[in-house]
Structure formats: C-alpha cells, structure tokens
Amino acid sequence: MSSLSDFELSRRGMMVGTAIATTIPSLADAASPASIAETHTASVSFEVNGEPRQLELDARTTLLDALREHLHLTGTKKGCDHGQCGACTVIVDGRRINSCLTLAVMHEGAKVTTIEGLGAPGHLHPMQAAFVKHDGYQCGYCTPGQICSAVAVLDEIKAGIPSHVTADLMGAIEPTNMEMRERMSGNICRCGAYSNIAEAMAEVAGERA
C-alpha cells in the first residue's frame, strides 16, 4: 500500500471518486458561472398516454423529470438517474428507453407510454395483473420499470429482434425463460423478485402465443 506522501496528491488527484464536490478551483472555473448565469428554457410537445402535452422546460430536464416533476406522473421512478438501474423505463414510440438518459426536449412529437398509461387500479393491463398474481415485486419501486420493460420485451421478441442469447437468428424467436431474463437484465430488482417476474412474463407470453 502506498502512503499518502508516496502519492504526491495533486488537486486533480483529489477528484478521484467524486463527481459532486468540486475541490478544484480550476475545475469550478472551467464550469464557468457564465455557462449557467441564466436558465435556458425550451418548449416541447409530445403525447403522453394518449394525451397531448406541451411543456416549457429548462433544457436540461430529462424526460424522466419532465414526467415526474412537471406532469406529476410519478409512476416512472428515479433509481439512479444515469442509466444503470432501469427503474425509469418508459415506452417511446413503441420502444422502451431509460427516460433518465434522454432530455425531454429531444422528444418533440413523440408518443410516450408510462406505467400509468398501461392500466390503472381496477382495470389493470394483463402484465400488471400477472405481476400481482405472481407477486413479481416487493417494495414496488422498480416495478413500473419492470412492467414497462416486460411489455416491450414481449413485443421485441414477437418482432424478431434478437438478443445475446438468441440461438437462431433466422427463425422465429421463442419467449423462453432465458430469452426473457436476458432482455430484462437492465431492470434491477434489489428485492429479488426475478423468479416471480419470470413467471408473470411467461404467463402473459403464453396467453399471447
């Protein structure tokens, strides 16, 4: 182990591991105050769960925060805010995306489906009902993202889009346990409901087949 003195700390060296606290005056200067001296806003129009919405937003607002903080559609969750957990998964123009990794203003004219658009208490989407039946969730925080992903995954399989574990790239793809688990692996469930989510998805995939 090298001691601190061996290491001859530079101020740049002190940045190791922190992305938040700027210990370096030079870096703070680089993120010149001029660059944030004013807040730049932009307008965006898109359709969310079938309803047209128009927003005037700070251009830095992610699609996730536009949904949660501006449209109050808090079913879409913020678990990491940088694309590592999948809790923010929504369906945009038919494809699932991490809504934290994209700015709202990039989606002019898009059709966005969130968990609230799939179903509501009293009239659940079949995937939502299957999650309840198979207990495919515990704390519930990753659940909307899991369900949006699960719905989109079955569509991807049906559309013949291959995954890392697809053995035959030419034939029809079957919604096997491994095929679904591979595709769902961007959606982390720390409560560990995976085995039950797989059963919920298998039930819905079986009904559709």
Partner: peptide
C-alpha cells in the same frame, strides 16, 4: 394472498417520499 397494495404498486400510483405532489 395477493398484496392488498398490489394494484397501486403495479400502476405507479403508490406515492413514495419524493413524489408527494
């Protein structure tokens, strides 16, 4: 027994701390 709050959690209508609009 299915969780009684299941319909809320699976539809995104259970509100967590940061979501108390």
């Amino acid at each position: 027994t299915d969780r009684i709050e299941g319909p809320l959690k699976t539809t995104g209508t259970a509100h967590y701390a940061y979501e108390r609009h």
